[in-house]
């Protein structure tokens, strides 16, 4: 059963586990709640026209943790991820009930500007999608858009720092003004991450960020995620269970729109309580 071993020990899993044990109540799965959460989903259901994609999901995301959402295709992981920063608003026929609490404020409420929300909650997509502009303009887009910097020198600094943190700086510093689409797939995805962290989001949502990349590029991005988790909370959707086991602090398993089990990654991968979870992680399902 224990065929997956974490590459490194979780940073705060014991504290989280303790917290969730004390806080869980009848309405929540054990392990779903944490002490002082950054982001909380409460009773979230999502419908596409008549089809229900997510059913009554409640869970917390802690400060500076990496939370992995796993489950078979079509289980609603991506939908839930896009619910967190209201990316589903622009999807026709999509309806959300329940609420997401970010910084103590519900985000599904009149008067909440999704634009402001997304400026604090970055998202990285499955397929690298840099803008068809130069490398520099890609990273500078967010700071310019939100007016985060006053001077060109500051912008240069932000662009360099973001590219440094994603390990891309040395590879692209001589061709900052070349088109971003001339980069390789792995570089493009790191550029997308650099673009996201350039606006210093509090939470980074990642939707299978490595599924289009080769193992070397994947390893790069995984170590980058551990690095980013020092300052950000990261929620990552992944199909790759080894990846979930390697990088995440906690893991949530979804099945047909239901949150089946959530807990520390160690616990989910070594001693799952639900048979569905066990079937999935041992490869009997999905």
């Amino acid at each position: 059963m224990v065929f997956l071993r974490r590459a490194e020990p979780p940073q705060s899993s014991s504290a989280l586990a303790a917290a969730s044990a004390t806080q869980s109540s009848s309405g929540f799965l054990p392990g779903a709640l944490v002490d002082r959460p950054r982001l909380s989903a409460r009773d979230i259901s999502v419908y596409y026209a008549d089809v229900q994609a997510i059913t009554n999901v409640s869970m917390d995301v802690a400060q500076h943790e990496i939370l992995a959402l796993i489950g078979p295709s079509g289980c609603g992981k991506t939908t839930l991820l896009r619910t967190f920063n209201r990316m589903n608003d622009s999807v026709r026929g999509c309806r959300v009930t329940g609420n997401v609490i970010f910084d103590g404020e519900p985000i599904y409420r009149k008067g909440v500007d999704p634009v402001a929300l997304r400026a604090r909650m970055g998202i990285v997509f499955q397929k690298p999608n840099p803008f068809p502009k130069s490398i520099y303009d890609n990273v500078a887009y967010g700071p310019r858009l939100h007016g985060l910097v006053d001077r060109q020198a500051e912008l240069d600094e932000v662009v360099e720092a973001s590219l440094q943190r994603t390990g891309l700086w040395n590879e692209v510093k001589d061709r900052l003004h070349k088109p971003a689409l001339s980069l390789s797939g792995g570089q493009q995805q790191r550029l997308c991450i650099a673009r996201t962290i350039a606006i210093a989001p509090e939470i980074i949502l990642m939707d299978e960020p490595c599924s289009a990349l080769d193992p070397i590029a994947t390893a790069r991005i995984e170590s980058l995620m551990r690095e980013l988790a020092r300052n950000h909370s990261i929620i990552i959707v992944t199909h790759n269970m080894q990846q979930a086991a390697r990088v995440s602090d906690r893991t949530a398993y979804f099945h047909e729109g239901h949150l089946i089990e959530i807990g520390t990654t160690d616990q989910i991968f070594t001693t799952p309580e639900q048979s569905l979870t066990e079937d999935y992680i041992t490869g009997r399902y999905g």
Binding site: N85, M87, A119, G122, K127, N129, P130, P132
Partner: peptide, 15 residues
């Protein structure tokens, strides 16, 4: 491609 709209929306650009 919608991925371009997603990218900009995700960065906090208005419609």
């Amino acid at each position: 491609p919608n991925s371009l709209r997603d990218a900009a929306t995700g960065m906090g650009a208005s419609r």
